[in-house]
Protein backbone atom coordinates (compact mmCIF):
# COMPACT_ATOMS: atom_id res chain seq x y z
CA UNK A 1 0.00 0.00 0.00
CA UNK A 2 2.70 2.42 1.03
CA UNK A 3 4.51 1.92 -2.23
CA UNK A 4 1.67 3.40 -4.21
CA UNK A 5 2.12 7.12 -4.72
CA UNK A 6 -0.61 9.43 -3.65
CA UNK A 7 -2.41 11.04 -6.53
CA UNK A 8 -3.01 14.76 -6.68
CA UNK A 9 -6.68 14.15 -6.03
CA UNK A 10 -5.97 12.18 -2.88
CA UNK A 11 -3.65 14.89 -1.56
CA UNK A 12 -6.33 17.53 -2.00
CA UNK A 13 -8.83 15.13 -0.47
CA UNK A 14 -6.65 14.76 2.63
CA UNK A 15 -6.31 18.51 3.04
CA UNK A 16 -10.06 18.98 2.94
CA UNK A 17 -10.57 16.01 5.24
CA UNK A 18 -8.20 17.32 7.90
CA UNK A 19 -9.53 20.85 7.76
CA UNK A 20 -13.18 19.84 8.03
CA UNK A 21 -12.55 17.44 10.90
CA UNK A 22 -10.21 19.91 12.59
CA UNK A 23 -12.80 22.67 12.39
CA UNK A 24 -15.48 20.39 13.72
CA UNK A 25 -13.36 19.29 16.68
CA UNK A 26 -12.37 22.90 17.35
CA UNK A 27 -15.97 24.06 17.47
CA UNK A 28 -16.88 21.30 19.91
CA UNK A 29 -13.88 22.02 22.07
CA UNK A 30 -14.50 25.74 21.94
CA UNK A 31 -18.00 25.55 23.41
CA UNK A 32 -16.84 23.26 26.22
CA UNK A 33 -13.83 25.44 27.06
CA UNK A 34 -15.87 28.63 26.86
CA UNK A 35 -18.42 27.36 29.40
CA UNK A 36 -15.68 26.32 31.83
CA UNK A 37 -13.77 29.58 31.33
CA UNK A 38 -16.87 31.69 31.92
CA UNK A 39 -17.50 29.87 35.19
CA UNK A 40 -14.03 30.90 36.43
CA UNK A 41 -14.22 34.49 35.18
CA UNK A 42 -15.20 37.74 36.79
CA UNK A 43 -19.01 38.25 36.45
CA UNK A 44 -18.46 41.66 34.94
CA UNK A 45 -16.12 40.28 32.28
CA UNK A 46 -18.67 37.64 31.30
CA UNK A 47 -21.48 40.13 31.24
CA UNK A 48 -19.66 42.63 29.09
CA UNK A 49 -18.46 39.92 26.74
CA UNK A 50 -14.75 40.12 27.43
CA UNK A 51 -14.41 36.35 27.84
CA UNK A 52 -13.41 34.90 24.49
CA UNK A 53 -11.59 31.68 25.25
CA UNK A 54 -9.67 31.64 28.53
CA UNK A 55 -10.92 32.92 31.94
CA UNK A 56 -10.70 36.70 32.41
CA UNK A 57 -9.84 37.96 35.93
CA UNK A 58 -9.79 34.43 37.33
CA UNK A 59 -12.06 33.98 40.35
CA UNK A 60 -13.73 31.20 42.33
CA UNK A 61 -16.61 33.51 43.31
CA UNK A 62 -19.19 31.55 41.33
CA UNK A 63 -18.22 28.23 42.89
CA UNK A 64 -18.20 29.67 46.40
CA UNK A 65 -21.65 31.11 45.86
CA UNK A 66 -23.04 27.91 44.29
CA UNK A 67 -21.75 25.62 47.02
CA UNK A 68 -23.25 27.89 49.69
CA UNK A 69 -26.63 27.20 48.19
CA UNK A 70 -28.54 24.62 50.20
CA UNK A 71 -30.54 23.48 47.17
CA UNK A 72 -27.45 22.62 45.17
CA UNK A 73 -25.86 20.57 47.94
CA UNK A 74 -29.14 18.86 48.69
CA UNK A 75 -29.66 18.09 45.02
CA UNK A 76 -26.15 16.69 44.78
CA UNK A 77 -26.71 14.40 47.73
CA UNK A 78 -30.09 13.24 46.40
CA UNK A 79 -28.79 12.64 42.89
CA UNK A 80 -25.86 10.61 44.23
CA UNK A 81 -28.21 8.51 46.34
CA UNK A 82 -30.63 7.89 43.46
CA UNK A 83 -27.83 7.15 41.05
CA UNK A 84 -26.07 4.62 43.29
CA UNK A 85 -29.25 2.84 44.42
CA UNK A 86 -30.78 2.82 40.97
CA UNK A 87 -27.62 1.62 39.27
CA UNK A 88 -27.23 -1.25 41.73
CA UNK A 89 -30.84 -2.42 41.29
CA UNK A 90 -30.89 -2.00 37.52
CA UNK A 91 -27.55 -3.66 36.93
CA UNK A 92 -28.41 -6.67 39.11
CA UNK A 93 -31.81 -7.19 37.47
CA UNK A 94 -30.40 -6.78 33.98
CA UNK A 95 -27.38 -9.05 34.35
CA UNK A 96 -29.26 -11.92 36.00
CA UNK A 97 -32.13 -11.75 33.54
CA UNK A 98 -29.85 -11.38 30.55
CA UNK A 99 -27.75 -14.34 31.62
CA UNK A 100 -30.84 -16.55 31.86
CA UNK A 101 -32.00 -15.35 28.44
CA UNK A 102 -28.60 -16.04 26.92
CA UNK A 103 -28.87 -19.75 27.74
CA UNK A 104 -30.24 -21.73 24.83
CA UNK A 105 -31.51 -24.41 27.19
CA UNK A 106 -33.85 -21.99 29.01
CA UNK A 107 -37.36 -23.37 28.61
CA UNK A 108 -39.65 -20.86 26.92
CA UNK A 109 -36.75 -18.62 25.93
CA UNK A 110 -38.28 -17.50 22.65
CA UNK A 111 -41.63 -16.59 24.19
CA UNK A 112 -40.08 -14.65 27.06
CA UNK A 113 -37.73 -12.75 24.75
CA UNK A 114 -40.64 -11.91 22.44
CA UNK A 115 -42.74 -10.57 25.30
CA UNK A 116 -39.88 -8.39 26.49
CA UNK A 117 -39.01 -7.05 23.04
CA UNK A 118 -42.66 -6.13 22.47
CA UNK A 119 -42.39 -3.59 25.29
CA UNK A 120 -39.77 -1.70 23.23
CA UNK A 121 -42.36 -0.97 20.55
CA UNK A 122 -45.57 -0.60 22.46
CA UNK A 123 -46.24 1.04 25.81
CA UNK A 124 -49.18 2.23 27.83
CA UNK A 125 -48.12 5.86 27.96
CA UNK A 126 -47.51 8.04 30.97
CA UNK A 127 -50.95 8.14 32.59
CA UNK A 128 -51.39 4.36 33.07
CA UNK A 129 -47.81 4.15 34.34
CA UNK A 130 -48.44 7.02 36.73
CA UNK A 131 -51.51 5.24 38.08
CA UNK A 132 -49.46 2.08 38.73
CA UNK A 133 -46.76 4.03 40.57
CA UNK A 134 -49.47 5.74 42.57
CA UNK A 135 -51.16 2.43 43.36
CA UNK A 136 -47.85 1.07 44.65
CA UNK A 137 -47.61 4.10 46.97
CA UNK A 138 -44.29 5.14 45.46
CA UNK A 139 -45.25 8.76 44.70
CA UNK A 140 -42.83 11.17 46.33
CA UNK A 141 -40.36 8.42 47.23
CA UNK A 142 -37.00 7.44 45.81
CA UNK A 143 -38.56 4.25 44.42
CA UNK A 144 -40.59 6.20 41.90
CA UNK A 145 -37.29 7.32 40.36
CA UNK A 146 -35.36 4.05 40.38
CA UNK A 147 -38.02 1.38 39.76
CA UNK A 148 -40.34 2.39 36.89
CA UNK A 149 -37.43 2.57 34.44
CA UNK A 150 -35.23 0.02 36.17
CA UNK A 151 -34.61 -2.30 33.22
CA UNK A 152 -33.90 -1.07 29.73
CA UNK A 153 -34.48 -3.73 27.12
CA UNK A 154 -31.60 -2.53 24.98
CA UNK A 155 -29.23 -3.11 27.91
CA UNK A 156 -30.68 -6.61 28.36
CA UNK A 157 -29.98 -7.32 24.71
CA UNK A 158 -26.40 -6.05 25.01
CA UNK A 159 -25.71 -8.19 28.10
CA UNK A 160 -27.43 -11.23 26.60
CA UNK A 161 -25.36 -10.97 23.42
CA UNK A 162 -22.22 -10.68 25.52
CA UNK A 163 -23.00 -13.80 27.54
CA UNK A 164 -24.05 -15.78 24.48
CA UNK A 165 -20.82 -14.93 22.66
CA UNK A 166 -18.16 -14.89 25.30
CA UNK A 167 -18.84 -17.61 27.84
CA UNK A 168 -17.62 -20.82 26.20
CA UNK A 169 -20.20 -23.63 26.53
CA UNK A 170 -17.38 -25.97 27.46
CA UNK A 171 -17.00 -24.13 30.77
CA UNK A 172 -20.62 -24.81 31.65
CA UNK A 173 -20.38 -28.49 30.71
CA UNK A 174 -17.26 -28.88 32.83
CA UNK A 175 -18.88 -27.14 35.80
CA UNK A 176 -21.99 -29.32 35.44
CA UNK A 177 -19.85 -32.45 35.61
CA UNK A 178 -18.35 -31.11 38.83
CA UNK A 179 -21.89 -30.83 40.17
CA UNK A 180 -22.27 -27.05 39.91
CA UNK A 181 -25.77 -25.57 39.66
CA UNK A 182 -26.64 -22.86 37.14
CA UNK A 183 -26.71 -20.28 39.89
CA UNK A 184 -23.35 -21.41 41.23
CA UNK A 185 -21.92 -21.27 37.72
CA UNK A 186 -23.17 -17.73 37.20
CA UNK A 187 -21.59 -16.39 40.37
CA UNK A 188 -18.35 -18.38 40.26
CA UNK A 189 -17.59 -18.40 36.54
CA UNK A 190 -19.78 -16.12 34.39
CA UNK A 191 -19.77 -13.06 36.64
CA UNK A 192 -15.99 -12.88 37.10
CA UNK A 193 -15.64 -13.15 33.32
CA UNK A 194 -18.02 -10.27 32.68
CA UNK A 195 -16.33 -7.30 34.33
CA UNK A 196 -16.38 -5.33 31.09
CA UNK A 197 -20.09 -5.84 30.52
CA UNK A 198 -20.87 -4.98 34.14
CA UNK A 199 -19.06 -1.67 33.63
CA UNK A 200 -20.92 -1.00 30.37
CA UNK A 201 -24.35 -1.70 31.82
CA UNK A 202 -23.72 0.08 35.13
CA UNK A 203 -22.41 3.20 33.39
CA UNK A 204 -25.37 3.32 30.99
CA UNK A 205 -27.76 3.24 33.92
CA UNK A 206 -25.71 5.64 36.06
CA UNK A 207 -25.59 8.31 33.35
CA UNK A 208 -29.32 7.95 32.70
CA UNK A 209 -30.16 8.27 36.38
CA UNK A 210 -27.88 11.23 36.94
CA UNK A 211 -29.25 13.10 33.94
CA UNK A 212 -32.94 12.41 34.51
CA UNK A 213 -35.29 15.18 35.50
CA UNK A 214 -38.53 13.91 33.98
CA UNK A 215 -39.40 11.17 36.49
CA UNK A 216 -38.52 13.46 39.36
CA UNK A 217 -40.74 16.18 37.92
CA UNK A 218 -43.70 13.81 37.64
CA UNK A 219 -43.39 11.81 40.83
CA UNK A 220 -41.72 13.97 43.46
CA UNK A 221 -43.68 16.54 45.45
CA UNK A 222 -41.27 17.45 48.25
CA UNK A 223 -38.57 19.90 47.23
CA UNK A 224 -36.10 18.41 49.70
CA UNK A 225 -36.14 15.21 47.64
CA UNK A 226 -35.40 16.82 44.28
CA UNK A 227 -32.37 15.59 42.35
CA UNK A 228 -29.83 18.11 41.11
CA UNK A 229 -31.15 18.20 37.54
CA UNK A 230 -34.56 19.37 38.70
CA UNK A 231 -33.02 22.22 40.70
CA UNK A 232 -30.87 23.09 37.71
CA UNK A 233 -33.96 23.19 35.54
CA UNK A 234 -35.62 25.59 37.96
CA UNK A 235 -32.65 27.87 38.23
CA UNK A 236 -31.27 27.75 34.70
CA UNK A 237 -34.29 27.35 32.51
CA UNK A 238 -37.49 28.29 34.27
CA UNK A 239 -35.91 31.50 35.53
CA UNK A 240 -34.91 32.42 32.01
CA UNK A 241 -38.31 31.70 30.56
CA UNK A 242 -40.43 33.65 33.01
CA UNK A 243 -38.78 36.49 34.83
CA UNK A 244 -41.54 36.60 37.42
CA UNK A 245 -41.38 33.09 38.71
CA UNK A 246 -43.79 31.91 41.33
CA UNK A 247 -41.42 30.34 43.81
CA UNK A 248 -40.81 30.85 47.48
CA UNK A 249 -39.09 33.92 48.86
CA UNK A 250 -35.71 32.29 49.17
CA UNK A 251 -35.79 31.32 45.55
CA UNK A 252 -36.79 34.77 44.43
CA UNK A 253 -33.84 36.11 46.34
CA UNK A 254 -31.52 33.59 44.75
CA UNK A 255 -32.82 34.46 41.32
CA UNK A 256 -32.28 38.12 42.01
CA UNK A 257 -28.73 37.41 43.03
CA UNK A 258 -28.03 35.12 40.15
CA UNK A 259 -25.32 36.64 38.12
CA UNK A 260 -24.11 35.59 34.74
CA UNK A 261 -21.34 33.34 35.93
CA UNK A 262 -23.48 31.36 38.28
CA UNK A 263 -25.29 29.91 35.29
CA UNK A 264 -22.01 28.73 33.83
CA UNK A 265 -20.84 27.48 37.21
CA UNK A 266 -24.01 25.45 37.62
CA UNK A 267 -23.59 23.95 34.17
CA UNK A 268 -20.08 22.82 35.13
CA UNK A 269 -21.12 21.61 38.58
CA UNK A 270 -24.09 19.72 37.17
CA UNK A 271 -21.93 17.78 34.73
CA UNK A 272 -18.90 17.38 37.00
CA UNK A 273 -19.40 13.72 37.99
CA UNK A 274 -19.81 12.78 34.33
CA UNK A 275 -16.78 14.81 33.29
CA UNK A 276 -14.71 13.00 35.90
CA UNK A 277 -15.94 9.65 34.68
CA UNK A 278 -15.47 10.62 31.03
CA UNK A 279 -12.47 8.39 30.22
CA UNK A 280 -14.39 5.35 31.47
CA UNK A 281 -17.63 6.50 29.94
CA UNK A 282 -16.06 6.85 26.56
CA UNK A 283 -14.36 3.48 26.67
CA UNK A 284 -17.31 1.49 27.97
CA UNK A 285 -20.09 3.28 26.09
CA UNK A 286 -18.25 2.58 22.86
CA UNK A 287 -17.88 -1.07 23.87
CA UNK A 288 -21.59 -1.19 24.63
CA UNK A 289 -22.47 0.09 21.16
CA UNK A 290 -20.14 -2.46 19.59
CA UNK A 291 -21.55 -5.41 21.53
CA UNK A 292 -25.06 -4.17 20.83
CA UNK A 293 -24.41 -4.24 17.11
CA UNK A 294 -23.36 -7.90 17.17
CA UNK A 295 -25.74 -10.65 16.28
CA UNK A 296 -26.18 -13.41 18.79
Amino acid sequence: MAAIKKTKFDKAFDIILYSVLGLLAASYLYILIYVVSASFSDPNAVYSGRVVLWPVDFTLQGYKRVFQEKMVLLGYRNSMLYMVTGTAISTALTLMGAYALSRRDLPGRGIVTGLLVFTMFFNGGIVPLYLIVRKLKMIDTMWSLVLPGAVSMSNVIIARTFYANSIPTGLLDAAKIDGSTNIGFFFRVALPLSKAIIAVIALYYAVGLWNDYFNAMIYLKTREKYPLQLFLREILISSQQSAAMTGDVLEQELLAQLQEIIKYTLIVVGSLPLLMLYPFLQKYFVQGVLIGSLKE
Binding site: G97, T119, P128, L131, L136
Partner: peptide
Amino acid sequence: FLIPMLAYFIIFHYAPLYG
Protein backbone atom coordinates in the same frame (compact mmCIF):
# COMPACT_ATOMS: atom_id res chain seq x y z
CA PHE B 1 -32.59 -15.28 37.71
CA LEU B 2 -35.33 -14.38 35.31
CA ILE B 3 -38.15 -13.83 37.81
CA PRO B 4 -37.05 -10.44 39.23
CA MET B 5 -36.74 -9.01 35.73
CA LEU B 6 -40.00 -10.59 34.58
CA ALA B 7 -41.73 -9.13 37.63
CA TYR B 8 -40.40 -5.71 36.65
CA PHE B 9 -41.75 -6.01 33.10
CA ILE B 10 -45.11 -7.29 34.29
CA ILE B 11 -45.55 -4.49 36.82
CA PHE B 12 -44.18 -1.54 34.90
CA HIS B 13 -44.85 -2.51 31.28
CA TYR B 14 -47.74 -4.97 31.09
CA ALA B 15 -49.85 -3.69 33.99
CA PRO B 16 -50.04 -0.22 32.36
CA LEU B 17 -51.46 -1.93 29.27
CA TYR B 18 -54.34 -3.07 31.46
CA GLY B 19 -54.71 0.55 32.52
